[in-house]
Design a protein around this nucleic acid. Structure first.
Lengths: 210, 210
DNA sequence: TACAAAATCACATCATTATGTAGGTTAAAG
DNA sequence: CTTTAACCTACATAATGATGTGATTTTGTA
């Protein structure tokens, strides 16, 4: 019997999920919550094998919930269940420790299948997601070894910014248009999964020392 | 005979400076230029004892000129001659290696006096400037020893920013208003003589390691 | 106590950055 | 010879950061 707990702030959807899970012969619902603020206490009590976690919830995001959960109950498998498929959330969810990432639009049947899959050691995810993850993994693997996957130009620009230069100064230094600088930085952010110069600098400089 | 070279992009002013300097019995003009791009070559040729340098010049700023000059000809004395008296330029000029900093509005006589003064080991500067420099020195001395003069709070905030946090995140972290963060950062910038987070981070982290 | 420095908050305004969209060039890889 | 990756440019809008001004409170110390 697979024990499953649900975290989903939408009441209707949470109930639907619950009944669908109960309907499965080999799965039992041990907990169902509208937020994940008390996720640690709940898990202590419920002892679920698998947790279905929505990303966007009031109070505490699913990402944070996953992070906490994995830290204290590393054996618990987590499947993110969300409407979002943007790179960022996926990346965050994966690095936070989720083993599955399924889109709500793909329906309940797939989610049930995902629960079984995750118990067999798999990593269930919607096709759309799978592709993104593969790509990210490819970038990541290539990158971490050398310079996080940044092209020489991109790295050069980040390093200039790290010295305290503004976009304008970098543009002048490299004899490029400021729009070009923007463009490079934009791609850099995507590769590093960040949203500001300081984050990018932090990431690049941290990875550098070793 | 004191050998002097002039770098000043305003033609009229450069000529006026030249004649005023030639008029002085113990000073000879060995070079006069409208820019400082070729300052190293010129200096090699002219071998001036003192260089009068304007700050704002096309191609290469006087600050950069001073930096280069001091690196290759440390014995050459440099007097900045400019219309600006804002803290920043003064600070930059001083740290770049200028030994005198005189305002154009104070006239040619004072500049001539400054040339003599600098040759006697002095540091000629207009009264307005002198006061600012004293203040900067006071701040600087107190600071360089520990953490550049930053208060504990200010340092804390810069370090949080260095980790890639935004103002908003820092405010949440420290349970403060975002305006308070702004306020601290503003003071920090004044103390460090910078104008952006990245510059501040760079400066703080550089000074830290040693 | 009275002054100075640190810390807090607010509001306004301008500058810079971040993000989206879109297109072009060039050089290596298949 | 086409595909891919890196590089370059442009324009528009939204979000964040930078700067100025002003004010209150606390704390350490002259």
């Amino acid at each position: 019997m697979i024990k499953v707990a649900i975290y989903e702030d939408n009441d209707g959807l949470r109930e639907a999920l619950g009944t669908a899970i109960e309907a499965a012969k080999d799965i039992s619902l041990v907990g169902s919550y509208g937020h994940c603020v008390t996720v640690l206490d709940n898990t202590q009590k419920d002892k679920p094998d698998v947790v279905i976690m929505d990303i966007d919830m009031p109070g505490k995001s699913g990402i944070e919930g996953v992070r906490d959960l994995k830290k204290h109950f590393p054996a618990t498998e987590i499947i993110m269940n969300t409407v979002f498929d943007d790179d960022d959330r996926i990346y965050q969810a994966i690095t936070a420790g989720a083993t599955g990432y399924m889109l709500k639009r793909n329906g309940l049947q797939e989610l049930i299948a995902g629960i079984h899959e995750v118990m067999k050691g798999g990593a269930p995810m919607s096709p759309t997601i799978a592709r993104k993850v593969m790509k990210a993994a490819a970038n990541g693997d290539k990158g971490t070894s050398q310079n996080l996957g940044l092209s020489p130009r991109e790295l050069e620009i980040i390093q200039l910014l790290a010295k305290g230069n503004s976009y304008k100064m970098v543009a002048q230094d490299l004899n490029l248009s400021i729009d070009t600088i923007r463009s490079h930085i934009k791609k850099t952010y995507e590769k590093l999964h960040v949203h500001s110069v300081t984050e990018a600098i932090h990431k690049v400089l941290i990875e550098k020392r070793h």
